[in-house]
Amino acid sequence: MTARCTRSRTRHTRRSWLSALAVGASVALFMSLFLLAGCATVQPWERGRLSHRTMREGAEPEADNMAAHEAGAREGALTPGASGGGGCGCN
């Protein structure tokens, strides 16, 4: 019993460290890319591909609303403007 608890605690500690490492590495990667963006100069006439609707934020509001509703119930996210709680068979 004690050995099982110790093994479980060790596994839990290892998982916490891996989580912290994954988050730290991701933040470092994104921050590096943001710093690179400081050097970028993209003129309006160079943004043709970026203006495509699949690259725009909120281009599919109906699907975004459905995803935000589900994320609020399952993954802990109150998205401003999204549907409120209840009704998804999960409350």
């Binding site: 690179l36 963006a37 993209v42 970026l50 996210a77």
Partner: peptide
């Protein structure tokens, strides 16, 4: 809830954003 976001155009073919949220 509060959300702070930062979007950056990295190049003519790349956009990145970082979002922090508290609830």
């Amino acid at each position: 809830a509060s959300e702070l976001s930062w979007t950056a155009v990295l190049s003519p073919v790349a956009v990145m954003d970082l979002v922090g949220a508290l609830e």
